[in-house]
Computed example of a mutant assay.
Amino acid sequence: MNFEFSDDEQQLSEAVQRWVERGYGFERRTAIARAGGFSAEAWGEIAELGLLGLGTSEDDGGMAMGPVAAMLALEALGRGLVLEPVAAVALVAASVMAQAPADVRANWAPRIASGEARVVLAYQERAARYKLNRVDTKATQAGDAWTLSGTKSLVTIGDQADAFIVSARVSGAADDAAGIALFLVERGASGVKTQGYALQDGSRAAEVTLADSPATLLVAAGPAFAALELAIDIGIAALAAEAVGAMDKLFELTVDYLNTRKQFGVAIGTFQALRHRLADMKMQLELARSMSYYATLKLGEAPDVRRRAVAQAKVQLGNSARFLGQQAIQLHGGIGMTDEYIGSHYFKRLTTMEMQFGDTMHHIGEVSARMLDTAGVFA
């Protein structure tokens, strides 16, 4: 298997890294977080890099460079703790929009790729507990028109988005996957209310309430659930890549600190016990990196294979992020807990990531459910 990246992929990764290092420093990120967790100015700069077209086809005005290029770009964004939700719009929402009717796709896909329109997935509900098939939001049809009623939680930049891709029930019981369809609802439509708030890591989300809000059908019931699963799997693979970038940078910060901080006249990084802990951190980082690659490479596989791969990656992500984050804080000592030091923000970001798209325990169950015919996780 060839693990070398193409010239285009490497150039994209380097371009994003340069922007992160020169244009998205800790001070700017802190200011964005204090202002609400989203910057339209930074979003425009991200659009100029072409990142918002990563998941949109060239016919629809995107780059369509593939999942590996997206993975490398998100690793670079993760190193800089970029708050703006590139993956949520450019990859997750774009994957659903690619299956929309031609007229809807022609209207929205090019604007998503250019950064003009911010469209995000709204699927989480309070009673669902990470189960995609548990949907209480109702869709009602009158002739050719649809209206939606319900509440979606933790919608990424929900009060800053232009439109939402909403999972809603057209038939069946509350957990019937076959009765779920996907709709587009504009934030300015009647009956739409949003309540924004900051998450623990400084990023932004919102509660979105729909009351007989007009909607456009994107994917009909039946194929819609498969489209939703694919979008979530793409989101998990993207999250894993971003987490690897964050862990890589946090590990680098820890190594630098241990080589700078002195006790008894020598750098504490020379102490054997601490070097052993660094070695354990590096091992967890590389385990997470390998599983990020694994999840990305499996996105084109059959749904059952893909779903198990991303669940495995999410389990490793949770374990590695928790271990590496805790070790980094302990090795830094008191400064690692302060809001003024960047290391604490990496730990907050990794902790938030562990809860997104299903926590570690949820995905252990997902992996277990797909191991009925084998005794090995990777068999």
Rank of each mutant, 00 (worst) to 15 (best):
V89H: 05
G66P: 13
A231F: 06
H345F: 13
Q326W: 05
S13K: 07
M1Y: 02
E45S: 15
A88G: 06
D212V: 01
N2D: 13
G115I: 06
T360M: 14
S203H: 03
A168F: 09
D304Y: 06
I232V: 15
A47I: 10
A100S: 10
K249I: 00
G376E: 04
T351L: 15
I32L: 07
G78E: 02
L154I: 09
S320P: 14
R308M: 07
E242W: 09
I32N: 04
A321G: 14
A122I: 09
Q330K: 12
D176N: 11
S213K: 00
V166I: 15
A211N: 12
V96W: 01
R261M: 04
Y293F: 09
E242L: 14
T209W: 00
S149C: 05
Q312E: 14
G325Y: 11
Q312Y: 04
A42C: 11
R289E: 04
G44E: 07
A267I: 00
S167Q: 06
T254D: 01
T209K: 11
G222C: 02
D256C: 00
N133W: 05
M353F: 15
K282L: 12
S368V: 12
G318I: 10
L83W: 03
D233C: 10
Q284M: 14
L51Y: 13
D212P: 07
V185Y: 03
E84P: 09
N107Y: 00
A94K: 01
Q99E: 10
G235W: 04
A139K: 00
G66N: 10
A313W: 06
A231Y: 02
G196R: 01
D162S: 12
K152S: 08
G191Y: 04
D162A: 11
K193C: 00
G334C: 08
K193Q: 12
A379K: 05
L278S: 03
R126P: 05
L274G: 04
S344T: 09
K282E: 13
T270V: 10
A168S: 13
E21V: 14
L217K: 04
Y294D: 06
V219M: 01
H345Y: 11
V367K: 07
N259V: 00
A178W: 02
R306F: 05
S167A: 15
K314S: 06
L199Q: 10
E229G: 07
I32F: 03
A128D: 05
R105Q: 08
K348L: 15
F183H: 02
F3M: 08
D212E: 12
I329S: 14
L121P: 11
F251P: 02
V255T: 08
A42G: 03
L258E: 01
M371Y: 07
A227C: 12
S190I: 02
S171Q: 10
V120G: 09
D60Y: 15
G37P: 11
F323H: 08
A189R: 01
S292L: 03
M353Q: 13
W43P: 05
R111K: 15
G202Q: 01
L317S: 08
W108R: 04
L228K: 01
V192G: 05
A94R: 01
V82N: 04
M337A: 15
F347M: 14
G325C: 11
S13R: 12
F323A: 14
G53V: 14
G143R: 01
E45Q: 15
A206T: 05
